[in-house]
Every structure is written in structure tokens, then in C-alpha cells.
Design a protein around this nucleic acid. Structure first.
Length: 405
DNA sequence: TATCCACTGGAATATGTGGTCG
DNA sequence: CGACCACATATTCCAGTGGATA
């Protein structure tokens, strides 16, 4: 019998929370230009004036959300100096909210007591909007509304227009709102209808990518808070920064490497984080990202991924859609699960490509061959197979996968 | 330069779910 | 309860697409 027990050993941390996503540091490093411009845009608010609607754009993990939280927190604090200034801020993350309706429901619920929440369907659109305006009027004189990841709202943009033109359209009795839209999809702005674009994007603020130096600054700042002195080797932070700069320039990713490396050290009962921990962390993070991405997408998507994986194992990638579908059909047939149409499988292939698990290439062979897409695995096959383990157990191990299983 | 291939991807539509309201 | 409402999931339909080829 193994003896089980919990015990605290050695740790490199003093405050691990400082490495987590929702931690907002007191100072924001490496974003001086952006912050200065941001402050100018928000300056009217301190005078009680209606702020312009602001649109922030820049790649994922370049500090858009962090800068916004930081600015609004500062603004709220400073606003307390002035008795005649009735200011509130509201941060809505639009991830998972596809339609204007859902955004409106989320806004209403964020402004209401937990006991007064409304459900996500059942009302007419007009009804939800009416309640939303009511809540804004009750909420504060000026509400700064942050719509984070606003590009996820893709079905219709009516809410964006309504919000950004709320006062002109007499939707509000007394309140005023300023909309701050945040997007990391550069094409989103261009896809907006002209009238929404001109109102939502009155002012624009672009965030540039972090370069390796700035990434190191960010990591260094968190290290001071999160770790004990001398518990992080010198090469660790440059390596995290280099890995992240190599991939995307995403600060969140860089911090994730540092966090996982720290956890590895702690789990191994070591006081010091080393380069080896970072290297191991990198592969751990990659695996996590993929299996989480796949798990979120449901089983049909996993069958599709598995189909591509088996073809890859046979050396048949890049492989065109039709062949993927054939393989997918054969696999799913064994499970007794329903077989989706080609159209829907193509949808899944698209989303897998979005996740970075597979990559797509457009091929055009002209009169003889026509135009089609080819897919291949974008990740090491054992990583993908690992993430698909549950699905594979269910489908049965394909011949070509055996050596990885 | 017109044609043509083999898909692509948008749109309309169908089906089922979970919700409100009178 | 029945009339509505919005959503997710999936299917069917079909007008493009654009480079190689004659």
C-alpha cells in the first residue's frame, strides 16, 4: 500500500497569483506610448463630459485588456475626488457571445443583482434592449462600457450601433455611455457596416507587439512580486521571453511558461526555477493548449482531427478535404455515431485550423484539377494523439496510430 | 482570353432545446 | 397551457473562385 499524504515542501514562490491572467500590476511596463495616448482619450471623463467611443486593436496578448483595466481603475480612483462626478465602469468579455442579443442580456445581468437575472432566451430583442437602457439609466451618470473581444460578436452588429449612438438615438434618459471596443482581429473593423464603424471607432488606439525586451520587462516585473529573491535563474526569463517572441509575441504566453516552470520546480520540491523547467514547461503548455482546444470543440471535431492524424501517420498529408472526409466517414462508421455532411466537416476543419492544430493550404490546379484545400497536422502527431486519447479509445485505435499509442 | 475543374463558403432552411409571458 | 422567442446544430442548395490550359 502506498502511503498518501499532502505536505508543503520547498517553493520558489512568494506570491504565485502575480503570474495569473487576472492579475493587474500596479504599473504597466513597456506600454508607455499606448498609455499616454489612452489617457488623452479618456481625459474628458474627469470633466464629466461624454467620452468618445474608443476602439483598441492589436494582436492577442499585447496588453490591451491589461491597459484598459489599469486605466479604468486609475480613472475610477481619481474620479472619487470629484463629488459631482458619477462614474461607473463595466467590463464585458464578448467571448462566447455571438449575437447582439446575447451581449445585451449579459449587460443587463452584469448590472443587476444576482436574484434579478434574466435568462438568455425567451424575450424579444426589443424587450432586452429596453431593460438594458433602463439599467444604464439607473446605474450611473457616465458608464464606461468595455466590450472586450468584441470581434466575437459576428452575427449582427446592431448592439454596437445602438450602444455607440445611444444618446443621439434617445435611448437613454439621463445616463451617458462611452464604449471601449477591444479586438485582436484586425479585419473586424473593416467588416463593420459604415455607420457602426464611424460611431464605434470614433477614436482608435493601436497596440504594437511586444518585442523581446518589453517581454522581459513584463516578466521581470512579475518575477519580483511572484518569486523569492534568487529563486529564478538568470537565463529563465530571457528564455521565456524568447519562446513567446518566437511564437506570437504574446505576453500571456510568456507568463504561462514562467508559471508552469515555477509549478514544475515546486512539484519537484526545488527552490530554484531553472532553464530546464522552462523547456519542460513549454512542451507542457503546448499539450495543454491543444487538448483544451480539442475538448472545447466536441466529439465530432475530434473525429475530424483524428482522421487527419491517421492520414498524417500514413504520410498522406497534406491531404485534400475529400480524402479527409472519406477517412472521417470510415472512423465514425465504426462508432455508430451519426456521420455529418461534408459541409459540416469542412466547418470543423476550419475551426481546427483556427486553433492551430492543423493548417490549411489553398491549391489551384486549374482546368485539369480545379481549386481545393489541403490540410496537414500543424503539431507533432504524438501531442495530437495524446489529446485525442479518449476519442481514440471510443473509435478504436487506427492501424496507423498504433506506434504512437 | 475563354473555359473549366473541384471544390469553397455564404445563405436559406430544418429540427430540437430551453426560455418568457398571459 | 399555447403562442412566441432566440439559439445551437446540422443539412441542402448553389453561385462563386481563380489559375492552368487549350
Amino acid at each position: 500500500m502506498t502511503s498518501i499524504g499532502f505536505e508543503r515542501g520547498k517553493t520558489p514562490y512568494t506570491n504565485r497569483d502575480a503570474l495569473l491572467d487576472d492579475y493587474t500590476p500596479d504599473e504597466l511596463v513597456g506600454r508607455d506610448d499606448e498609455l499616454e495616448e489612452y489617457q488623452q482619450l479618456l481625459n474628458p471623463v474627469i470633466w464629466g463630459d461624454q467620452p468618445s467611443n474608443i476602439f483598441l486593436y492589436g494582436k492577442a496578448g499585447v496588453g490591451k485588456t491589461a491597459a484598459t483595466k489599469f486605466m479604468l481603475r486609475t480613472l475610477e480612483q481619481d474620479a472619487q475626488e470629484y463629488d459631482d462626478l458619477d462614474l461607473a465602469t463595466l467590463h464585458i468579455n464578448c467571448d462566447g457571445l455571438e449575437s447582439s442579443y446575447q451581449v445585451a442580456v449579459r449587460i443587463v445581468n452584469s448590472l443587476r443583482e444576482p436574484s434579478q437575472q434574466i435568462s438568455e432566451s425567451g424575450y424579444s430583442k426589443a424587450e432586452v434592449y429596453a431593460r438594458m437602457w433602463e439599467e444604464f439609466d439607473n446605474n450611473a451618470g457616465i458608464t464606461l462600457l468595455v466590450l472586450d473581444e468584441v470581434d466575437h460578436v459576428r452575427k449582427d452588429d446592431s448592439i454596437l450601433y445602438q450602444l455607440s449612438r445611444a444618446r443621439e438615438n434617445d435611448n437613454l434618459e439621463t445616463a451617458r455611455i462611452g464604449v471601449i471596443g477591444i479586438s485582436n482581429d484586425m479585419t473586424f473593423r473593416d467588416r463593420l457596416s459604415a455607420k457602426v464603424k464611424s460611431s464605434l471607432c470614433e477614436r482608435e488606439l493601436s497596440f504594437s507587439d511586444y518585442d523581446a525586451t518589453e517581454l522581459r520587462q513584463v516578466l521581470e516585473q512579475r518575477r519580483e512580486v511572484a518569486f523569492k529573491d534568487e529563486s529564478v535563474n538568470d537565463d529563465v526569463i530571457p528564455l521565456c521571453a524568447a519562446y513567446a517572441a518566437q511564437e506570437t509575441g504574446d505576453a500571456r504566453e510568456a507568463l504561462d511558461y514562467l508559471l508552469v516552470a515555477g509549478d514544475l520546480a515546486r512539484d519537484a520540491n526545488q527552490r530554484t526555477v531553472t532553464v530546464d523547467h522552462v523547456k519542460e514547461a513549454k512542451s507542457t503548455v503546448e499539450r495543454q493548449t491543444i487538448s483544451k482546444g480539442l475538448a472545447d470543440r466536441g466529439e465530432q471535431s475530434q473525429y475530424v482531427a483524428y482522421a487527419v492524424a491517421t492520414l498524417d501517420a500514413e504520410g498522406r498529408t497534406p491531404v485534400r478535404t475529400t480524402d479527409v472526409y472519406e477517412r472521417y466517414e470510415r472512423l465514425v462508421d465504426r462508432t455508430g455515431e451519426r456521420i455529418l455532411s461534408t459541409r459540416w466537416v469542412r466547418e470543423h476543419l476550419d475551426s481546427l485550423a483556427m486553433l492551430g492544430i492543423i493548417s490549411a493550404d489553398e491549391i489551384n490546379e486549374g482546368a485539369g484539377g480545379g481549386q481545393y484545400k489541403e490540410y496537414e497536422l500543424d503539431q507533432a502527431i504524438d501531442v495530437v494523439v495524446d489529446a485525442l486519447r479518449d476519442t481514440i479509445d471510443y473509435v478504436g485505435v487506427h492501424e496507423s496510430i498504433k506506434k504512437h499509442y
